[in-house]
Simulated scan of single mutants.
Amino acid sequence: MTWYRKMALSAGALVMATGGLAATASPAAAVGGCPAGKLCLYAGTNYTNMKLSTGSIDSCWDLPNYGLTSVKSYVNNMSVKATIWDRASNGEYYLDGTISPKRFSSNAGANFGYYGIACTE
Rank of each mutant, 00 (worst) to 15 (best):
Y4I: 13
Y4K: 15
Y4W: 09
Y4M: 11
Y4S: 13
Y4L: 14
Y4F: 11
R5P: 00
R5A: 11
R5Y: 05
K6I: 10
K6P: 00
M7P: 00
M7G: 05
M7A: 14
A8W: 03
A8D: 00
A8M: 05
A8Y: 00
L9T: 08
A11L: 10
A11K: 01
G12P: 04
G12E: 04
A13Y: 06
A13Q: 09
A13I: 13
L14I: 14
L14P: 02
L14H: 02
V15G: 04
V15D: 05
M16F: 11
M16V: 15
A17V: 15
A17M: 14
A17F: 14
A17C: 08
G19K: 06
G19C: 07
G20H: 11
G20C: 12
G20L: 15
L21W: 12
L21V: 13
L21C: 10
L21R: 09
A22C: 08
A22Q: 09
A23I: 09
A23Q: 13
T24C: 01
A25V: 09
A25M: 12
S26M: 11
P27A: 06
A28Q: 13
A28G: 09
A28V: 10
A29K: 15
A29W: 02
A30E: 14
A30D: 13
V31H: 02
V31R: 11
G32K: 10
G32R: 13
G32H: 09
G33I: 06
G33F: 06
G33V: 07
C34P: 09
C34F: 12
C34G: 10
P35R: 10
P35T: 11
P35S: 14
P35L: 10
G37D: 04
K38F: 10
K38L: 06
L39V: 05
L39E: 06
L39Q: 03
C40L: 05
C40F: 03
L41T: 05
Y42I: 08
Y42T: 10
Y42V: 07
A43H: 01
A43T: 02
G44N: 10
